[in-house]
């Protein structure tokens, strides 16, 4: 791996971590539902997915989740976030490679998949199937957040000049 690329990925891991932190400062939309988040780090992850590739995006995403869980969350929350992040990135990669959907669509599907992944892990850990009743509300909030994140990612993609590695 070239030094310039390594630096770029390190920089974007930091950006994703800062976005995770900024997200914790935002007032919760509703306290009744845990798991409603903006998904701001996805702006950085999508940028890498478009500019460099899915392997690099996966590495940055996983490193981000591990570091953020250790810094601001707990080891248990790491499992939920990892499941969400991996499912979300897999689907976003497939959509970006195989379809012509734009940033906003990919971000919405990514956000929704993040929620689904988290719910599935929560279901597995607690063996309480009723947890899926959270899903409809999470899908709506995930779509709304995904639209904003997708618009931001699209703007970033358009405005940041292409770098050659």
């Amino acid at each position: 791996m070239k030094t310039s690329k390594m630096t770029f990925l390190g920089l974007f891991t930091a950006v994703a971590m800062i976005l995770s932190f900024v997200e914790t400062l935002l007032p919760p939309l509703t306290s009744a539902l845990p798991g409603i988040k903006m998904g701001l780090p996805n702006i950085a992850i999508m940028f890498i997915l478009y500019r460099i590739g899915w392997k690099e995006a996966t590495v940055v995403s996983i490193v981000r989740v591990i570091l953020v869980s250790l810094l601001f969350g707990s080891v248990i929350s790491m499992a939920y976030s990892l499941a969400g992040a991996i499912l979300s990135l897999s689907i976003m990669t497939l959509m970006q490679k195989l379809t012509s959907f734009n940033h906003v669509s990919i971000s919405v599907v990514g956000g929704v998949c993040h929620n689904i992944g988290q719910i599935l892990v929560a279901w597995a850990v607690t063996s309480t199937a009723q947890i899926v009743y959270y899903l409809p509300v999470l899908l709506i909030s995930g779509s709304a957040a995904g639209i904003l994140v997708g618009l931001a990612a699209g703007m970033l993609e358009k405005r940041v000049p292409k770098i050659k590695f």
Partner: peptide
């Protein structure tokens, strides 16, 4: 935004709303 992006997001939100109503 193209037409199919609107359709995709619309379908996801509509599906979520239907599920929500069913649950309620």
């Amino acid at each position: 935004m193209k037409k199919k992006d609107f359709i995709l997001i619309g379908v996801i939100v509509a599906l979520a709303l239907v599920l929500l109503i069913c649950v309620k």
